[in-house]
Computed example of a mutant assay.
Amino acid sequence: MKTNINRRRSLLLFAAATAIALGGCGRQDEAKPLVALEIDPRTTCDLDGMLLADYPGPKAQIHFVGVAAPMFFCDTVELFNTLLRPEQVRAIAGVFVQDMGKADWEQPRGHWIDAKTGIYVLGSKRHGSMGPTIASFAQEAEAQAFAKQWGGRVLRYAEIKPEMVDLSGGALHDSKM
């Protein structure tokens, strides 16, 4: 009888320890924050195959739920065109753009921010990899200063509409690709 009690107690302790260990593993994965991946000389745009490092202007990336690698874009217009299409139904874990208040326009590296918190300048004279682009910023003051220097209209993420990100002015007419 004492052996059965000890065996039951051991099994219960083992089951409890296993549940705690497995539960802890799941929480660690869930707690891990999503971060943008940095581009390297071989990183290509998922839409057109262009090397991101070879072109000026802000870059972007979408992280889809259940997909290890992000979808990279050589231009923010491509990003918004993809996000705002009605057929885009995949679950999104995160979207990142570069803060052009900190990144070098000609060779942007790093300075990734959550796209939903970004401030954008549409219609400036500065061009990205596909021609006219949407400049992305973390700070509204930097977006306002950019718009004052280069022209354009300052917008928030939710204010960007599908008709503002038509690719027919850039990607479809790029003869250098």
Rank of each mutant, 00 (worst) to 15 (best):
M1K: 05
P70K: 12
P70Y: 07
P70M: 06
A145P: 08
A69H: 04
E163R: 09
A115C: 09
A19H: 02
M164C: 05
A135P: 09
P58T: 11
S129Q: 09
N6A: 06
V95H: 01
G118L: 07
W112K: 10
C45N: 13
A135L: 04
A103N: 08
G152C: 04
D166M: 03
V95M: 08
E30I: 02
V97Q: 07
V65N: 11
P56H: 08
K59N: 14
I5D: 01
L34T: 11
F72W: 14
A171M: 15
V89T: 13
R156F: 05
H173V: 15
A19M: 04
E140Q: 15
L122Y: 08
M71E: 13
I20R: 06
Q107W: 09
E140L: 07
A147I: 07
A145E: 13
L83W: 08
D104F: 05
P86H: 00
T133A: 11
R109Y: 11
D99Y: 11
C45R: 11
G128T: 11
L12A: 05
Q139D: 13
R9E: 00
G57S: 13
V95D: 05
S10T: 03
C25A: 12
Y120P: 08
N4D: 00
L12T: 00
L12V: 02
A135M: 10
G66S: 06
D46H: 15
H173K: 15
V165C: 03
T133E: 09
A103M: 08
A17H: 00
D114K: 12
G151A: 10
P86W: 00
L34H: 04
M71V: 09
K161F: 03
A138T: 02
G26A: 08
R126L: 14
G94Y: 02
R9Y: 03
K161C: 00
E106W: 06
Q28N: 03
D114M: 06
V89W: 00
L155M: 13
A141L: 08
L167W: 04
G151H: 07
L167H: 10
S175V: 15
G152N: 08
G94N: 01
A69T: 06
T44W: 04
P70S: 02
L13E: 01
A16I: 08
K2Y: 01
T82F: 09
D29I: 11
P86L: 00
P41K: 13
S175A: 15
V95Y: 06
Q61N: 10
I113W: 10
K125C: 04
A91D: 14
Q98A: 12
M130L: 15
G49K: 11
I92M: 02
K176Y: 12
L122V: 15
T76K: 01
M130Q: 13
G131P: 12
R156K: 14
D166V: 06
I5C: 00
C25K: 03
G131Q: 13
A36F: 04
R42G: 02
A138C: 06
I39N: 10
R27H: 02
G170L: 12
A91M: 04
F96Q: 03
L13G: 07
M1D: 03
F64M: 05
C74E: 14
F73D: 07
D46K: 12
K176Q: 14
E30Q: 13
